[in-house]
């Protein structure tokens, strides 16, 4: 379970995230929806312990992101940005193994897990090739495998489909769906209404660092009496967003 309590982050005088209050249940796919600069990446970075909140707390599976940052990191996997950031002189397997080793996984376990991944993701042709020659889709698969090698119960994805074509994006959607099993939680940010509608159980719409709406897709559609998420989003944004209280 993830709980954000009055989570805020300022960069100088700029309030990137202000007073975010959220609760995300185990097994949920949760979408963060917002335009450029809304504060999605900053929020995910605080959850990932990469940034310290200016005030408020992020509690992940009962661990505080500042006090127990190491514990938090064991519980999460992250995949940030469209650029997947692989080491291109290493093979896909070596990339994945490097992270697995840093998670203190046992050799035999690593081997088995990678075998499994290769089967599921269909990577047998290139698992032992250097990633410099990979297509974007192949890179994305490798990065996804790397982010989930330690089998985290929570996955944080920041715009995982940006820069990908339709086929590669669909692949990512399939990973996300397949990862949902076993009560695992996924939070991901996106600009794409389509993607959000297809995948998410619940969403939060963020505007200028504040949540302006939160709920399941059905709840939100019912509340605004509109079946088109894009319209609801544009309306809310143009109103500037009345502060949503959780």
């Amino acid at each position: 379970m993830i709980k954000l309590v009055n989570l805020s982050k300022n960069f100088g005088s700029k309030e990137a995230v202000s007073n975010l209050n959220l609760e995300i249940k185990d097994g949920e796919i949760f979408g963060l929806l917002g335009e450029n600069g809304a504060g999605k990446t900053t929020t995910l970075r605080m959850l990932a312990t990469m940034l310290k909140p200016t005030s408020g707390n992020a509690i992940i599976n009962g661990y505080d992101s500042v006090k127990n940052d190491e514990k938090v990191r064991e519980n999460i996997g992250i995949l940030f940005g469209g650029e997947t950031g692989l080491y291109d002189r290493l093979t896909a397997r070596e990339n994945i193994e490097y992270f697995a080793n840093l998670y203190d996984m046992e050799k035999s376990k690593i081997k088995k897990t990678i075998e499994n991944i290769v089967k599921i993701f269909n990577m047998s042709d290139y698992i032992d090739k250097r990633t410099s020659i990979f297509s974007k889709g192949m890179k994305q698969k490798t990065a996804f495998a790397r982010a989930t090698i330690h089998n985290p119960s929570i996955l944080l994805l920041d715009e995982p489909t940006s820069g990908l074509d339709i086929t590669a994006a669909k692949q990512v959607h399939d990973f996300i769906k397949s990862y949902k099993h076993e009560n695992r939680t996924i939070i991901f940010s996106s600009h794409s209404m389509d993607e959000i509608e297809k995948l998410c159980d619940r969403i939060a719409i963020i505007h200028k660092g504040k949540t302006i709406e939160i709920g399941t897709l059905d709840e939100i559609k019912k509340k605004y009496n509109n079946n088109n998420l894009s319209d609801i989003f544009s309306d809310l944004i143009s109103k500037g967003g009345n502060d949503y209280e959780y």
Partner: peptide, 14 residues
Amino acid sequence: ERNTFEALFSTKAK
């Protein structure tokens, strides 16, 4: 430049 610091820092390693 490769954008790998974040992923690397998110592992268990300090």
